[in-house]
Amino acid sequence: MTTNLPAIYSFPPLYTCQPNALIREQQLTVWCEIIVEFAKKERVWCITAEGTPAKDGGDKQSVFRNDVIQRSVKSTFIEEIWHKMIETEKALRIDSDSNYFILWRSLDSWSALILQWFESSGKLNQVITLYELIEGDETLGCEFHGMDSMLMEKCLLRLRERGRASLLKDQNKVMGVKVV
């Protein structure tokens, strides 16, 4: 998990909540960057409150824990980090299971990217299923390919708010989308 993370990830005091207020602000910012960087590199869309990828097996290790230097972040400080993540719109809390979506792009930026794909691949005015959009061959290589479907829904809702998309639902679950 430590691969490609910034050097400060190996700096032992990073794992202790710093009493100096100015330093702590920096420390929280650094933690947000680390989480976003980690999620982006590993293409992890969703992380548990404890810092492990939500959808994988149980053996994945928490980003808040660094075995090489034998340090880990205390749960009270982890809460502060999540608070900062939410505040700076780098994470979105999922109500149902208290996990977090990590937004290495903002929702607006994701929906712009998705819109761009509809436009450039000639998919306007036709119904595209969520499955095609997320897992289909035509989005292979797109940054949003493989996105968590609940997160995809949120992006599509943004497009609907802008009057660019209508959503097709089945039993209150979004199944497809038509972008105009």
Partner: peptide
């Protein structure tokens, strides 16, 4: 910076070492 997770006592780190990749505990 304070490090409260060291064995034995609290360590006080110089942030100059943030960029050292070879920190030995």
């Amino acid at each position: 910076w304070i490090d409260e997770q060291a064995v034995g006592e609290t360590l006080f780190w110089d942030p100059a070492w943030i960029h050292h990749s070879d920190i030995g505990i």
